[in-house]
Nucleic acid binder design. Structure first.
Lengths: 185, 185
DNA sequence: GTCTATAGGAAGATAGAC
DNA sequence: GTCTATCTTCCTATAGAC
């Protein structure tokens, strides 16, 4: 059948779900095949370089999503409180309210560390920079804003870990609720 | 040679280093063999049930270490500030000042999740409970102490993630330095 | 208690028909 | 573009000599 079953965008979306659910190492080609509904060979048609390329595509899509849905709205907001609200809303959606793991935990710690660790680290620094800019917009400057940005990132990442580890998603909501205090007050 | 090369304790210690460095999935028996200096078959002599049993032994040893070096000293301390100082010192050693990953990230997210996720979750709740008790000893009560305990755990776990992901260990030191404010003030 | 050798299976990746 | 079949490699685990 020379007609594609799925758009590349949809394939990447399904791969994202699978990588988030299983992590890099555990996401075998068999599972990726199930998750996408495509045979292994079809996946290699979309991604000739194999599993690494699939993971890179997932990371690139996540970066683009964050640029559109986090960075742009926050930058466009007028007041610090508005920036904060938009960031919180975007993060809640990105992490599916704590149900979805961060790529960092999944990629930077497993077998993908060598191949993709730097890309994930860059994204993380970008989010930290955004947090710092929100703190600066609230009147905190220099080292103080930087420390607040770092703490905000730490709290978000830690909440994802604790939520998954303890099986209690509400930890993540409470962490997001703390961000205004951390960045603005 | 019917004479053991290593004590079981030393074997577990070396396994701990290997599991922390590679995670559960990536710690192949070949790597565990290298890390211990024992052949694969010798490892199976110590742990007939295989890799899962090795990981359980590592977790049990970690639990015992935390009981002796974190829980007992903190419980024995007189003042809240003293409890805090002892907890901070023990956590710094347990995580090797941020260089060592938490077992949670490594075990609860990888292939060991089904087998050992609950054990790790229990340890995590125990540490959170200890944090909460420190907050209570400082005069915070009920929900407030619980919220502080949760935030402390979130910050510690998040700092480990960010430190490893960004390659900057100093994040962890700064996180530990924030604990007194989180739990006591 | 340690070793060498190997069984048995699953992984990632490829070949070629349609 | 998708499929079935297969290759190679690496994995966990076991068998049996010493």
């Amino acid at each position: 059948m020379p007609t594609p079953k799925l758009s590349r965008e949809e394939v990447v979306h399904r791969l994202t779900r699978a990588f988030r659910a299983f992590g890099f190492d555990e996401a075998s080609l068999a599972k990726l095949s199930d998750a996408t509904g495509l045979g292994r060979s079809s996946l290699y048609h979309y991604f000739p370089e194999g599993k690494d390329q699939m993971a890179r595509a997932v990371l690139d899509a996540a970066r683009a999503w964050l640029a559109d849905n986090l960075v742009v709205p926050v930058s466009a907001a007028d007041t610090p409180a508005d920036k904060m609200a938009r960031a919180r809303e975007a993060l809640g959606r990105f992490y599916e309210n704590g149900q979805a793991a961060c790529f960092l935990e999944l990629f930077a710690l497993g077998g993908a560390q060598a191949a993709m660790g730097e890309a994930v680290a860059q994204d993380m620094r970008a989010v930290q920079g955004l947090f710092t800019s929100i703190a600066e917009s609230a009147g905190h400057c220099g080292e103080d804003a930087k420390a607040r940005g770092e703490l905000a990132l730490v709290v978000v990442q830690g909440a994802l870990v604790v939520a998954r580890g303890g099986g209690d998603v509400s930890v993540f909501e409470r962490a997001l609720a703390r961000l205004p205090q951390i960045l603005l007050d």
